[in-house]
């Protein structure tokens, strides 16, 4: 009943890496729902500076991590946008899995017999 989990995880990570590494370059670059609402009421020049009006982003401050080498989903120093976005995405997937999976693994419940945990496959 214990099917191999490793292959499923590997397959899932591959899909995630393809989405973040390739498909991400075709994503919309319009501001998202929140950002669009926050900019509503102001006018912006070509450099995205506020030129007038009243809106939520007026008091916006810089991000503390704006100088991060991965800031804004790119890799500092890589000028090719497709590569820069794609590589930052793949890196993000890897880091998220490593840190997230690592922390979950560390705090997991240990030593419980598999019987106390109803496995769906047995009664499905």
């Amino acid at each position: 009943m214990k099917k191999r989990l490793g292959w499923f995880i590997a397959g899932g990570l591959l899909v995630a890496a393809l989405l973040a590494g390739v498909v991400s370059s075709f994503a919309s670059s319009s501001p998202d729902g929140l950002d669009a609402a926050a900019r509503k009421g102001c006018t912006f020049d070509a450099d995205d500076n506020i030129t007038g009006g009243t809106c939520m982003v007026q008091q916006e401050q810089d991000h503390q991590m704006k100088d991060s080498p991965l800031a804004d989903y790119g890799i500092k120093g890589i000028d090719n946008e497709f590569l820069s976005t794609g590589l930052s995405g793949v890196l993000g997937v890897a880091v998220t899995f490593a840190i997230g999976g690592g922390v979950f693994w560390l705090v997991r419940r240990r030593g419980g017999s598999s019987n106390e945990h109803t496995e769906g496959a047995t009664s499905a």
Binding site: A16, L19, T96, W105, R108
Partner: peptide, 19 residues
Amino acid sequence: LAPMAGLVAAFIFAVQMLN
């Protein structure tokens, strides 16, 4: 569930890039 949760986090990261 622990590795599965790691995968779910990584997958959500990836899909959040897809505006």
